[in-house]
Design a protein around this nucleic acid. Structure first.
Length: 106
DNA sequence: GCCAGGGCGCTAA
DNA sequence: ATTAGCGCCCTGG
């Protein structure tokens, strides 16, 4: 497995329940700026039953990027943890986006 | 090897 | 608010 994947997964696992992050945000936090697309790949490669909360990752517009049944599954998981969807099928990022504590300085 | 298409995103118009 | 163009990297044909 690609070493970057481990960092991607580790970052995603920091997203608290009931909050969401965007692909670009994860890429950035994982030290892979500009490679949002790779996040999607990493998640796609994720085996079922892993501890990684893949459902908490959305695109920059606050919507689910998966088509069909997969998307419905993701949505159900999010709703189950308290995330609300608007009529247009989007999530209000200003309300639900995860804002990790900035890196420590010294 | 080249080409096209993806769980994406930013900027410019 | 939308669209077009480009950058990124991975996979499949």
């Amino acid at each position: 497995m690609h070493p970057d994947y481990a960092r991607i997964y580790a970052t995603i696992q920091r997203i608290p329940r009931g909050r969401v992050a965007t692909y670009g945000q994860i890429a950035e936090l994982a030290g892979l700026p500009g490679r949002a697309r790779q996040i999607g790949y990493a998640l796609h490669a994720l085996p079922g039953g892993s501890p990684v909360p893949w459902q908490r990752v959305l695109n920059a517009r606050g919507e689910i990027s998966l088509p069909g049944a997969s998307g419905a599954r993701q949505r159900a998981l999010l709703v189950a943890e308290g995330v609300e969807f608007g009529d247009d099928g989007r999530i209000d990022l200003s309300a639900y986006q995860w804002r990790p504590r900035p890196a420590r300085r010294r």
